[in-house]
């Protein structure tokens, strides 16, 4: 066997209840359990988290920078998706 590098896992940590898990970095690990433990030791040494997700890096598909225009610019001209687009007379409540 050649000196296999353990697979790479991306690590997501939830800092407090009720907020999303945030990507913090990655670790190498032979299996998922080890990845969670390694992530705990590396990324939560100063009580930075209450929950950890690990995902095999190979399992992540990402959009590419070249797609940036095609993917994200079309939404720039749809201001009607944002509530501030609409004018509501003063005095109307709960809208």
């Amino acid at each position: 066997m050649s000196d296999t590098q353990w697979p790479l896992w991306e690590v997501f940590v939830q800092a407090n209840p009720g907020i999303p898990h945030k990507h913090v970095g990655n670790v190498h690990a032979a299996d998922a359990e080890m990845a969670i433990q390694n992530a705990r030791d590396v990324y939560t040494r100063r009580s930075e988290g209450i929950s950890i997700w690990v995902v095999p890096a190979a399992a992540i598909s990402a959009s590419s920078p070249e797609d940036q225009g095609a993917f994200f610019e079309p939404s720039n001209d749809k201001p009607y998706r944002h509530p501030t687009f609409y004018k509501i007379p003063e005095g109307v409540k709960y809208l």
Binding site: M1, D3, T4, W6, A30, D31, M34
Partner: peptide, 15 residues
Amino acid sequence: GRWVREAAVAYAAKR
């Protein structure tokens, strides 16, 4: 450490 790293990989592959 090499045999340790290999063991972990072998174990993961078995599972």
